[in-house]
């Protein structure tokens, strides 16, 4: 008897729990979260990580100068391409949300993003991508803004190579 009662209770609770969203019209989140990487962001990340590894391999003495330069230029190109794609993604998103923002505000944001992209490009080109955490740092940095590591570009300059 108690078994039947408990079983009935269990079944009722479970069915109510499972059916509730359909009956009450509750929805699971459907959207991409803001902190999920987009495809282009993902590509950029991979490229930056690879760039970091090359930097590290060079410093560890695993790559000689010629190999290092070759790999680095290839990877920089990949990173820059990914960056372009990401910028493209951003623009599309802006355009989509443009009607919600005022004209001026929209242009301001856009410029801001363009500025950031320009900065990233420069840091990739100039080799201020951190060897430890792959952060692209501004041109004049001596230390990584993210993790505080000394930047290899500076290190090389100091040693005069």
């Amino acid at each position: 008897m108690t078994v039947l009662l408990l079983a009935g209770l269990l079944a009722t609770v479970v069915v109510a729990y499972v059916l509730h969203p359909v009956v009450a019209g509750r929805w699971a989140p459907m959207e991409r979260e803001v902190d999920e990487l987009t495809e282009a962001q993902h590509r950029k990340r991979v490229a930056l990580l690879a760039l970091r590894d090359v930097e590290y391999d060079y410093h560890a003495g695993k790559l000689d100068d010629a190999d290092y330069r070759k790999q680095k230029s290839q990877l920089s190109l990949e990173a820059l391409t990914a960056l372009d794609e990401e910028a493209g993604e951003w623009r599309t998103r802006f355009d989509a949300s443009a009607h919600e923002l005022g004209e001026r505000e929209e242009r301001a944001r856009r410029e801001e993003v363009e500025a950031e992209i320009a900065a990233l490009r420069a840091s990739i080109r100039e080799g201020t991508v951190c060897t430890q955490c792959a952060t692209p740092n501004p041109l004049e940095s001596r230390y990584c803004g993210e993790c505080g590591s000394a930047l290899p570009g500076r290190e090389r300059a100091r040693r005069g190579t």
Partner: peptide, 10 residues
């Protein structure tokens, strides 16, 4: 349909 998805997750 988010409601169906939520029910499935439950």
């Amino acid at each position: 349909r988010g409601d169906l998805i939520l029910s499935a997750e439950r």
